[in-house]
Computed example of a mutant assay.
Amino acid sequence: MVPINSFNKLIEIGSYEECRATADWLLEHTQVRPTVGIVCGSGLSALGDMLKDPQVFKYCDIPNFPHSTVRGHAGQLVFGTLKGKPCVCMQGRFHLYEGYPIQKITLPMRVFKLMGVKTMIMTNAAGGLNQDYKVGDVMIIKDHINLPGFAGVNPLCGPNDDRFGVRFPCMSDAYDRELQQLAHNVAAELGFSNFLRDGVYCVLGGPSFETIAECRMLHRLGGDAVGMSTVHEVIAARHAGMRCFAMSLISNRSVMDYDSREKANHEEVLETGQQRAKQMEVLVSTMVARLDGDENEDKNSS
């Protein structure tokens, strides 16, 4: 084989051909034709265990898929049904700090699109910048601030393939407002409104947690929570015309005071996820049950 240079390798990562090959392989190995995709964040893999008649694929066995390296991420795709809806669930996602190119991190979104997914539901664990938030609150993401994007780290960099989406996609509607309202309606019925919030999610590259000065800056910019994931997936999913809903489990309060002795740590993230996971499972499953064919279609896609 003739080796190709690093520039061509970068361009080919996440290409239509690579994603099509992965989607075709998965379609050949499962009878499920998912219309809903779910991404589980740190400590929230139990969401994938809700699927009935599950068919599991380790990431390492899927052609072109990266491998999850983070503790608390199972590293597998689960196909099955949730409340009668065909779904695919990522138990574990990929991050910039794992060393993957951003096009590789978001490859699953494009694969899901080619498999027929219409709606993406994403979860993550995040630090609370908003001082009114408590550990264990769940924040519905209404908007995001993409700090890596300010430096040109965006999954859509490089040549655009119109088979996925337009060159300059709108992001003012990145998080579907109807799905946000559905979440609030369901939460009210379940008695979960007391820990549900709405806010802006800030993404950083990680893996180090934020400094006090960085937290103060992000809060002043309008951020309510901060983490290291989700935004890049949302950008790729919206580019491909899928509807997106995302929520953050507030696993720790970001340190804003130089006199504080609090320290963010991954163990706290996982522990908080375990405590709130059951209620998030019920919330997500009830939302999925109320999705129908028309509701799954992106009203703004061309």
Rank of each mutant, 00 (worst) to 15 (best):
M280E: 06
V226L: 06
S42I: 11
K113M: 00
S15M: 04
G92I: 06
K278N: 10
D224A: 08
I145H: 04
P34D: 00
L47T: 04
M256N: 08
M1E: 03
A74N: 13
V226I: 15
L204R: 14
L129R: 11
G75Y: 05
E295K: 14
T81Q: 09
C215D: 10
C40N: 11
C202N: 15
Y97E: 10
S172Y: 12
N5T: 09
V138G: 04
I102F: 03
R163M: 04
A246M: 03
G222R: 05
L190E: 12
D53H: 13
F195R: 09
R253Q: 13
W25N: 02
P3D: 05
G205Y: 07
M115C: 01
I102N: 03
R261L: 15
A225I: 10
H219I: 13
I145D: 04
Y175D: 08
M50D: 06
E233R: 03
D294A: 07
A225T: 14
F164K: 03
M228E: 05
G99N: 09
E18T: 02
K299Q: 11
G152T: 11
K85H: 09
S6V: 15
M1K: 02
V186G: 09
V56Q: 08
P54M: 07
L44H: 08
S254L: 14
I105P: 03
L77I: 02
